[in-house]
Design a protein around this nucleic acid. Structure first.
Lengths: 341, 341
DNA sequence: AAAAATCTGATTTACGTACATCAGAAATGG
DNA sequence: CCATTTCTGATGTACGTAAATCAGATTTTT
């Protein structure tokens, strides 16, 4: 049987009340007594029964999810996953609230974070826009003792407790190798479509992509990045323009969202050229395009996993528990026609 | 606040004891009363607090993991993950025991399963050898009301509650497409190394591989399958033999374990030919080979995820709860040089 | 209609922890 | 050395559910 608080009390030769004071760092215990209890805890290997503790506390974790108000499939999917978590929340003793802020707007995000300080939620998850003011706002929350995790896109140099998202440099590198190898030894231009260089995930993907391209596929040259702000219409216009102006494009890497527009542009041009295309994020649109051959591979991060991981980590931090690192590593999914879920 | 048993009692106009009888399907409740209570439960949306219930029951789930005694890195890794779960088990109210049985031996596996019937564990997880006697033994356990999940390799036509492993047909298809595209339009032979056609996962990978090869890469022809029984030495001998005898081999697909031997054979031949190689299972050996260029891509299933998923599912089944399907889907990882964890 | 069987209600204890209260002990101050 | 402060023990209640007991109410059987 697992040891309980009673066992600690017996082992340390003190009363239950004293054990409780030590365990919950309440005042009123002499230093020597405290040490005696702590030794006993270590020796018999006591681990607090979190379920019983939460039951006794009547605790519910109140978490806040901050998501960007972006009109693309990926963010809709992320929102849906957060909502699914909200639906499950009563069972899991959590009370999750979402907060929408304008996309790519550091000031609005920082303001939202500061508002939360007074609320003192049990944890905050956010899709970060990588800017100093956001970082500072996050650090203030952390200073207040509120667990913070970033989701999808990380925050440079901040004190956030955890990042629930993929390694975007690796994602960019992987995209480059796939594109390079799929193209065999062909020479030509590669177009890159991004959302915005303001978010760290897009910057990192480009960085990784460019590195491998330069190292290993010197026959391919990257054209200046197209920033479509994750907006389908904007992406469509810019990509169509690039394709008609530059005849040497043989490959496309779409590292952000707004792929609906990209796909439309590709289909319009498909009569006159064959392109190898790697895109990010599996949505209804990209899935169809993968199946019909418009896209050759999709790199994906599972938003559901990210949301659930973020919640697990927030819970663990709120309880002062450790997390299983391997379990919380968000993996980069590579989808070809054949292994779609 | 979440409704409790007291709320049901009040809503249905019965006593707590009656609610308890209904909830835990104990006898002693008239049909009409039972329905009244069930209606109340539905109407106020009561969900049993599993944590409190387990606390009250003092329940610990005793699970058994049956793993094959195979001397290859993948099975060692699987074993290590099970051991890690065992180490965590007291915290999670589980009591996990492992049972080793000879690999590829349906009779031994069936016998082990039958032994468990008398023990009545709260759940059983096994790496299945796909044979009728194993299926029947599993079905007997299921008939006894014991939750059973297969891990890594599934069991055809059985009543097992869940399969915690990848879609192996999709894995084979993915391997074929990667190999075909990496080879550009080249023509030649492809060698396939398997463990044994007795396990369903290997059969399915081959099936998927062959299908895509035939459909999409007619220039590549598959040589007769080499069965290395997941044994490094045997694999080394057979592959070395094939490479020296057949001069037309330009690609290799290793769909089982025992890659240590494969890699050795490949390195011995690497002076005279360039091969494109796709292998399964990320281990120290395959990782090194991927990084040094001996292997071009690794398809992997995360043994840790499979073990944790199996435990979550067993727990849920034991509690009569539903599982989050998307969370329990085991994904096929594709690793290139650039996205190794 | 009486006896037996079946159902239902009321009440209590337990699980492991949190938290509060109150009394008594030990340490510290003057 | 007494008064005060600080520590410690004993005890009880609560969280939501499980499970047991016993008494009383219905229904069914004879």
């Amino acid at each position: 049987m697992r040891p309980t608080v009673h066992d600690i009390a017996a082992a340390a030769g003190v009363s239950l009340a004293t054990v409780d004071r030590v365990l919950n760092q309440r005042p009123g215990v002499r230093h020597v007594t405290r040490e005696k209890v702590e030794t006993a805890i270590r020796e018999i290997g006591y681990v607090r029964d979190v379920a019983a503790a939460n039951l006794a506390k009547g605790r519910t974790y109140s978490f806040v999810f901050i998501v960007p108000a972006s009109d693309n499939s990926f963010m809709h999917g992320l929102n849906a996953e957060v909502m699914a978590a909200v639906a499950r929340s009563p069972v899991e003793r959590t009370d999750i609230r979402t907060l929408e802020v304008p996309a790519f707007d550091p000031t609005a995000l920082a303001a939202a974070l500061d508002t939360l300080r007074s609320e003192r939620p049990a944890g905050v998850a956010l899709v970060a826009t990588d800017a100093p003011e956001v970082r500072d706002a996050v650090d203030r929350l952390v200073q207040d003792g509120i667990p913070v995790v970033t989701v999808v896109s990380d925050l440079t140099g901040s004190q956030r407790h955890h990042y629930a998202g993929v390694d975007n440099i690796a994602a960019g590198r992987t995209a480059a190798r796939l594109l390079g190898r799929f193209l065999g030894g062909a020479k030509g231009d590669v177009a890159v479509l991004a959302g915005s260089m303001l978010v760290r995930d897009h910057r990192e993907r480009l960085e990784g992509f460019a590195a491998v391209m330069a190292e290993e596929f010197p026959g391919l040259s990257i054209l200046p990045v197209i920033e479509g702000r994750d907006d389908p219409d904007m992406a469509h216009m810019l990509v169509a323009d690039a394709l008609s102006k530059r005849g040497g494009i043989i490959g496309v890497y779409s590292l952000g969202a707004g792929n609906r527009g990209l796909i439309r542009a590709l289909k319009e041009k498909s009569v006159d050229r064959a392109l190898t295309v790697i895109a990010h994020e599996l949505t209804d649109h990209t899935r169809t395009a993968l199946l019909d051959g418009t896209i050759d591979a999709i790199l994906n991060q599972d938003a559901g996993h990210e949301v659930r991981s973020a919640i697990r980590v927030l819970k663990a931090k709120a309880d002062g528990l450790s997390v299983i690192d391997a379990q919380e590593r968000i993996r980069l999914d590579i989808f070809l026609k054949d292994n779609l879920p």
